[in-house]
């Protein structure tokens, strides 16, 4: 089974070509027309309309005014907040996930821990959006179980300025889908650190710390960074979770796109297009960085 989370760029294997492989000039390409037609119609063209409409003025003709609007404080602020929450949750989820995955793979940990952890991660990474938001309301909301529990011990977190419906609360919630994703992505890379390297280093007198500082981390670094870049994009595109949790009180780009498009605040579709274009650009950059890092890490961690 392909590992979806890791295999974003798969290197095609070269195989001997059999007699069935199409020769130049044959009509075999007709077989893939339905697929390409579908992706063109429902993926490429919508993205293209967004891009052109972001530059189109309502009166006809082209304009940069919507793109310029992105730099107005309100919209610029949304980009900053989105980038900030994506960075923070990618870092927290990434580092937390790295330690958990590493701990689960250690030889002193019972063998059943790992399948249990990956199974739960598979579920948790897919359990996101609206139900996740309400799970956290039940946990850390004003009447939430943990909130009440702490209050019984005299720690009223809401009186001390905490709120689930803020940037901090959103961060705690996002980590619930970032952490399991990190665990799933990083376990194969951690397994790529061969035991023989470890033994070789130990034989040469290296300590545990020295091994990680000079061998383990440098090898792992590209995949570690790559995984976090992926988490970044994952958080950036989140819409359902922040929508259900904060109903728009935290100024995030996807929420803003939803608002200006559906006219809940003020309908301004071209501005929505410009915001969407900005999102696509940011996530595309992160995917390109991920692909480059992946290529680098494949050198050592060939699986």
């Amino acid at each position: 089974m392909a590992d979806t989370t890791r295999d974003i760029t798969t290197l095609p294997m070269s195989r001997p070509r059999g007699i069935l492989v199409a020769k130049r000039g044959s009509l075999a390409w007709l077989g893939v027309v339905p697929f390409f037609l579908y992706t063109t119609l429902f993926l490429l063209l919508p993205a293209l309309w967004l891009t052109t409409d972001a530059f189109r003025s309502p009166t006809g003709g082209y304009t940069f005014s919507f793109i310029q609007k992105l730099f107005q404080s309100q919209y610029e602020n949304a980009f900053f907040t989105s980038i900030r929450i994506s960075l923070v949750t990618a870092l927290v989820g990434g580092i937390f996930g790295l330690f958990v995955a590493y701990a689960a793979l250690r030889e002193d940990v019972p063998r059943w821990v790992r399948p249990l952890l990956t199974t739960y991660s598979g579920v948790a990474a897919n359990f996101a959006g609206v139900p996740l938001a309400f799970a956290f309301v039940a946990t850390l909301g004003g009447a939430g179980l943990v909130t009440q529990f702490l209050a019984r011990f005299g720690l009223d977190i809401y009186a001390r300025g905490f709120s689930l419906y803020t940037f901090t609360g959103l961060t705690i919630t996002y980590v619930y889908f970032q952490l399991p994703l990190m665990i799933l992505i990083i376990i194969p890379s951690l397994e790529g650190i061969k035991r023989e390297w470890r033994e070789a280093a130990t034989n040469l007198g290296a300590t545990h710390t020295q091994f990680w500082r000079h061998i383990g981390l440098p090898i792992l670094f590209p995949s570690l960074l790559g995984a976090m870049v992926l988490l970044f994009g994952n958080a950036f595109s989140a819409y359902a979770t922040p929508y259900a949790l904060t109903s728009g009180s935290v100024n995030l780009v996807p929420i803003l796109i939803g608002n200006v498009t559906s006219g809940e605040v003020v309908a301004d579709p071209n501005l929505g297009d410009a915001l969407a274009l900005g999102t696509i650009v940011i996530i595309s950059i992160s995917v390109v960085i991920y692909a480059l890092l992946q290529r680098r890490s494949d050198k050592w961690l060939r699986r």
Partner: peptide, 10 residues
């Protein structure tokens, strides 16, 4: 291996 879709239902 475990599956997860990225950036879909968030």
């Amino acid at each position: 291996q475990q599956q997860a879709q990225i950036g879909t239902t968030r």
